[in-house]
Design a protein around this nucleic acid. Sequence first.
DNA 1: TAAGATTGATCATTCAATCTTC
DNA 2: GAAGATTGAATGATCAATCTTA
Lengths: 151, 151
Amino acid sequence: VTVRLSNDDLAAWRSFLDAHASLVGVLERELLAERDLPLAFYDVLVQLHEAGGRLRMSELARSVLLSRSGVTRLVRRMVDFGLVVREACPSDGRGAFAVMTPAGRSALRRAWPVHARGIQRHFADHLSADEARTLTDVFTRITGAGNGPGA
Amino acid sequence: VTVRLSNDDLAAWRSFLDAHASLVGVLERELLAERDLPLAFYDVLVQLHEAGGRLRMSELARSVLLSRSGVTRLVRRMVDFGLVVREACPSDGRGAFAVMTPAGRSALRRAWPVHARGIQRHFADHLSADEARTLTDVFTRITGAGNGPGA
DNA sequence: TAAGATTGATCATTCAATCTTC
DNA sequence: GAAGATTGAATGATCAATCTTA
């Protein structure tokens, strides 16, 4: 294996890693402190919301980037808190849905402004409009280039 | 709490999260498959290398973004593999150093090209020189703005 | 009594194996 | 037999409590 990676590219990579750790950390702490909601719960609620309130376990696993078993256990914890319920799939006896409850919707409604404020304050406020577009372009390219779980 | 976060900013944020998960995933899998080295071990070796081969446990914890107890246990695992040794601090009886062994240096030397190739291929190859500079600028600003553990 | 570090308890995640339904 | 999902065992992380030295 031969190396060519430039110092500028390495600097970009490291700043990316540092920023990610810093941002995820502060957002998780804020959501927990102000709404008592773990980011993992929040992510599930967002995905369910965007899917119209219900999602098959496998699809949920893909969208929150967790293993199937990880989602099984995450959903069980959320069921204990009343944020979602499980439902059997009528068309496929093997399948199960995670379905958002009214309490789940309410938790999401209450959490969203806090989280959005955090993204604004800690991330977007430090970006020009051009830079925001550049980031979206670059990262969309990168993710699309097939580094996914099967790469 | 009032929300203003724009769609463009939110898109940038989501693309950032997706890219991070995708990149860290593929780099971890490559390093494990080709050098049998977990990314966590690799990070410790890099930090020790850049510090001249030895680091106090607390400083190591800060530089690899882990809790103190997390580092205690990570270092113990690495000691079991012969990649580092622990040493008492002569000037402060409470302190301990993690010190890279020859085997650790060798593992780092063998891992670096694989990891660098991955960063090049999966990240840097998708960036123009301008974009790389923009990323470094933006992320340095963001991380510097005080979203660290104490924020 | 504060700081560096480790330990104990617990939690969240994964892989491999399993169960059920297709 | 293969796919959706869950379960058991093991790993890796954290917080709170503890121990030791400053």
